[in-house]
Amino acid sequence: MQIELKQIVPIPLKDKFSQRNSDVWNQTVLFQHGEWIKIKAPSGTGKTTFIHTLYKLRHDYSGQVFYDDQEIKNISGDALAQIRQQKISIVFQDLRLFPNLTARENIELKRVLQSPFYDAAIIDEMAAKLGVASILNQRAGLCSYGEQQRIAIIRALIQPFEWLFLDEPFSHLDHENISKASALIAEECSKRKAGFILTDLDEDAHFNYSKYLQL
């Protein structure tokens, strides 16, 4: 699946963005299938707005977003769910775990939402790789933010996808954990021949990016 943006500008930020040069806002941008894209942006330039727009969580923008040939404003309900189950996975900046479910249940929910891509045992494998195996049976609400972030990453990786949206996915991780997590993400994306769009504040060398964009 390819994703295309045509002159999107968030309406609440219209005045602010029309002054700046951006590789994304108000441009035509094409994300080809399997591209690893880094979007760098300072605080307050709309990283989360961008990811949410792409994921069809907000509609307050002008311009158009296409998944393949379909404008996402025309996709809704069960069809949208189908895309989120099979083609697009996401790690939110604010993580969005269910605080009352255990870490494992949060991941499991995403695993069984569609016909499972992986066996349940993979959850333990991934958790072991990211060093969160011991807190899997703890309520997510009781985990530290760093732990929750890794749980959210595993949750995103447990399902099938063609695109992975990562909104500052390493904000609360130390260097060692970042390299473990990025290695796992790279492995999973390669395995699926999937692309990702990662937003962050700074330059980094966590991945072998195929495209850099400035927001």
Partner: peptide
């Protein structure tokens, strides 16, 4: 809230 998050995560209205 739970239902909205479920839908955000990809649970279909049908499910």
């Amino acid at each position: 809230e739970e239902i909205q998050l479920l839908i955000t995560l990809g649970a279909s209205p049908k499910q």
